[in-house]
Design a protein around this nucleic acid. Structure first.
Lengths: 265, 265
DNA sequence: GAGAGAAAGTATCACAGATATACTAATGAG
DNA sequence: CTCATTAGTATATCTGTGATACTTTCTCTC
């Protein structure tokens, strides 16, 4: 799991008071520079930046230790000196690529949460691979925490208790992830081959033949409803996607309202 | 992508009227038995069943073509005769493992959707690997369609339009997936090593030292809130998880209520 | 009642990625 | 200067996907 030569792997050397797992130290960028021995030409941030660049270009699947190393002019094994394992690299990439949250309107909780959700969605849309990074633990990177802080700040004037705040936060952030992932996976699925319109038409045609109206009456009605007819040709995909996203988000916010109702804005 | 020897790979041989992609045919179990040549000892269902069994035991990561083949007493390559690619195998597994939806209370939409969500959650909890199968397209397997039908049936007495029905459905189902995945991934993360309590204590200790109250005031308050103190020792994990799940679900249902409000039950 | 030829299953192979182990190289403390 | 310490490398193993080119075992046709 963890390379035997990782700095900080020798945990016993530290006081239990100072103990912060090596992974967390790397996540927060607090590693002692190591004053002895050969100086490092490489460091965590370099490695992570290179990996992120590759992910941006080729998706998460394109990130392999050999490729990252080559893009830096080193061998694969050199990376283990800095990141412990590929899983850890992914975690580091996720926090780094997430970046800090933008300044946000905190006037009203509803507007605040809405803009938080849209901001996060924008980040994920720019880097869809982020939604595919397996969450290997509770949020612990500095940027993840910063986003969390932003959301909590938005809800701070609210009478919600901590459990509700955390619940709302994870509901919304889960929704954002889920919705971006959905879209990006569908887009990927039809990447090689035909265009979106063709793919949808084929899908529809095939399924209409498979979905027996006796067995699946509602679904059959859905497939023959206007929803699956071609949208007016001028409509950009993004507009449709935004509408879908807003629909769910506003629904959630309505739900939140019910909990906050009697209280302040 | 698709094995060169797949039955049905020779698409040109079919009328365009009959055209249903090979993958869909396998998904719906409608492949002509092939009256010529050597009869098959293996078939899609056998392969999929074996793969599901492995996934149940070892997780999705444990599913590899060699292992599946060996468990059936064949070689890896033989599977390509029946499933086209590993990705397709995953899709087939997902639909098969999902199974048909149980009979459900359709009296009131709210109770209906609630029990739909809990039913789906139960399936996912039983097979957490299901939440990790990449969705390679819109729902198209017979079981996926059946679950969709069930949800649409529940909403059929409602005044929601199709766009809203689909929106609500995907919101809820996304929530279920997200929430089960979250839990299973966290559980996995602490699988090797210490128990849950230890892990959480370590997490808390480490983060408390990293989360500067100046920079992250709300988060710091959260960490020192009662929420992170140990729950009464008798409480089973499942109870806590159920409460978390219900919190989000009821919130969503409240949101749905707002859309249905003036209408029927 | 061959034997053509189609489909099932197999044997090998090439390749790629993760990561352990054992090396060589550079550098500052003493 | 020299040696403990740390950085990066070389090499090798193990595992997984999937390509290519067989051999086997059927049925259908002549």
């Amino acid at each position: 799991m963890m390379g035997p030569n990782c700095p900080g792997a020798n945990v016993g050397a530290m006081t239990s008071e100072d103990f912060v797992p090596a992974q967390l130290r790397r996540l927060w960028g607090i590693s002692e520079p190591a004053r002895l021995g050969r100086p490092a030409a490489l460091d965590v941030n370099l490695v992570v930046a290179a990996a992120v660049e590759i992910a941006d270009r080729d998706g998460l699947g394109g990130v392999t230790l050999p490729k990252v190393a080559k893009s830096l002019g080193f061998t694969s094994m050199s990376l283990y000196r800095h990141v412990g394992s590929k899983d850890e690299l992914l975690t580091l990439m996720a926090d780094s690529a997430l970046g800090p949250p933008p300044d946000m309107d905190t006037a009203g909780w509803r507007e605040g949460l809405r803009s938080w959700a849209f901001a996060q969605r924008a980040v994920f849309q720019r880097r869809p691979w982020l939604t595919h990074v397996p969450t290997s633990g509770p949020p612990s990177g500095p940027n993840q925490i910063a986003w969390m802080e932003a959301a909590l700040a938005i809800m701070s004037r609210t009478r919600l208790d901590w459990a509700h705040k955390v619940g709302v936060l994870s509901l919304i952030s889960g929704y954002v992830v889920q919705s971006v992932r959905q879209h990006s996976e569908l887009a990927e699925g039809r990447a090689d081959g035909q265009g979106q319109a063709d793919a949808e038409r084929d899908y529809g045609r095939a399924l209409v033949r498979l979905v027996d109206p006796e067995r699946f009456p509602e679904t059959a009605r859905l497939f023959s409803s206007a929803l699956f007819e071609a949208p007016p040709p001028g409509t950009p995909d993004a507009t449709v996607a935004d509408a879908d996203f807003s629909l769910g988000l506003e629904l959630i916010l309505d739900g939140v309202t019910v909990r906050i109702e009697p209280g302040d804005s």
